[in-house]
């Protein structure tokens, strides 16, 4: 049951990802990205990370994607890009991506097998996550992230000002 759901969600997510990179209109790409992120959130739930899934929807689909759409609309970006011709870079890029993908999958297949272990009832809940996040090991990283976010905020504001 879990596997079926996982395959469904994942397949949909991959399909949506494919749409993202193939649409000419940025708007369509953005919408496909939203879909992809939603399906990934489904995978997170299956992987017993409900809180991460929730945040995925809230932060990514809710906030980040809105930003994207906002920019797309602000700049009135229509489908001004024909789908790329297969230039040398594109060709090399595709081949490379193929190599990277195949090699990685093969690599993973050799290394990893077997089912997941059992987990406790609290696994993946917001409480557990908070406990992990705030324990000594991750505290510094958390603070670093907060500084990073603040900096990005300030940077975005500065960059967005009319006269730079």
């Amino acid at each position: 049951m879990e596997l079926v759901l996982f395959v469904l969600f994942s397949g949909a997510a991959l399909a949506a990802a494919g749409v993202v990179v193939t649409r000419t209109r940025p708007f369509s790409a953005a919408m496909a990205l939203v879909a992809c992120l939603f399906f990934l959130a489904g995978d997170y739930v299956i992987l017993q990370a409900p809180f991460v899934a929730a945040l995925q929807i809230l932060v990514y689909a809710g906030a980040i994607l809105v930003l994207f759409l906002f920019v797309v609309m602000l700049l009135r970006l229509e489908g001004d890009e024909a789908l790329p011709r297969l230039g040398p870079r594109q060709a090399v890029g595709l081949v490379l991506a193929g190599i990277v993908g195949c090699a990685s999958v093969a690599f993973a297949a050799f290394e990893v097998s077997g089912p997941f272990p059992e987990t406790g009832p609290l696994f993946g809940t917001a409480d557990a996550l908070a406990a992990t996040l705030l324990d000594g090991r991750n505290l510094l990283a958390l603070e670093g992230i907060s500084v990073l976010l603040t900096t990005a905020l300030v940077g975005a504001v500065v960059l967005g000002r009319k006269e730079l």
Binding site: V7, V105, V112, P115
Partner: peptide
Amino acid sequence: VSVGLLPVL
């Protein structure tokens, strides 16, 4: 059938 790490990866 459980999911396992491989499909996820």
